[in-house]
């Protein structure tokens, strides 16, 4: 049915009985078969496939698959663990930043409170100083006013006597006569409208 190969004819003598039946062409066994359809090799192929593949499967399921699976799982765990660690560290960092910010805000508040207190204190002191100074000034002013009033009063009191003297003198010089002090005083009083 397929190409009959001289190669197979050569290898046939080792097969003994098979080659003889094959040579007669009636049997599908042996002979010049297309190799993949030569059923005389099937038993051997199935047996050796079973042995080799069975061993391979055993090796795979008992050693290789658990090993590679273990490597991959170990790596996956390790990566997950590292990610967790990174997350934890990040959270810690965030907390530290928050604490720092909080402390900074507190310090700022405290500083401003201290400044406020100092300002308040200085203001109070200045105010007190001012009040004191003002009081002193007012006192001095009052004293000054008092002395001015006294001087004024004194001066005003002297005005009449000066006027009398002046008038007496003026009259004496102009009229050559003399007037009494009482007369002059009356005149002045009349002149000044008192």
């Amino acid at each position: 049915m397929f190409v009959v190969t001289p190669a197979y004819a050569q290898s046939n003598p080792t097969e003994g009985t098979h080659s003889e039946t094959g040579a007669h062409g009636a049997e599908p066994h042996g002979g010049g078969m297309f190799p993949p359809f030569d059923s005389s090799t099937f038993a051997s192929q199935i047996l050796w496939l079973a042995i080799t593949f069975g061993l391979f499967y055993l090796l795979m399921s008992k050693v290789i698959v658990p090993r590679i699976g273990g490597i991959l799982e170990h790596r996956r765990d390790r990566i997950a663990q590292d990610l967790d660690e990174a997350n934890r560290l990040k959270e810690e960092g965030d907390e530290a930043i928050a604490a720092y910010e909080q402390e900074l805000a507190d310090a700022r508040k405290k500083a401003s409170a201290i400044a406020e207190a100092a300002r308040e204190k200085a203001k109070t002191a200045a105010e007190a100083e001012r009040v004191k100074t003002e009081a002193e000034l007012a006192e001095k002013m009052a004293e000054a006013e008092k002395s001015i009033a006294a001087i004024k009063q004194k001066a005003l009191a002297d005005v009449d006597s000066i006027a009398e003297e002046t008038a007496t003198e003026v009259v004496k010089q102009l009229l050559g006569g003399s007037v009494t002090k009482a007369e002059v005083a009356d005149a002045i009083r009349a002149a000044s409208g008192k």
Binding site: T41, S44, F56
Partner: peptide
């Protein structure tokens, strides 16, 4: 009566398994 010879096919099955494993 069954021919279970170790053939070139068997050899390469062994080689395949040895190489892969």
């Amino acid at each position: 009566g069954l021919d279970l010879s170790f053939t070139n096919s068997s050899l390469f099955m062994v080689a395949t398994v040895a190489a892969a494993a």
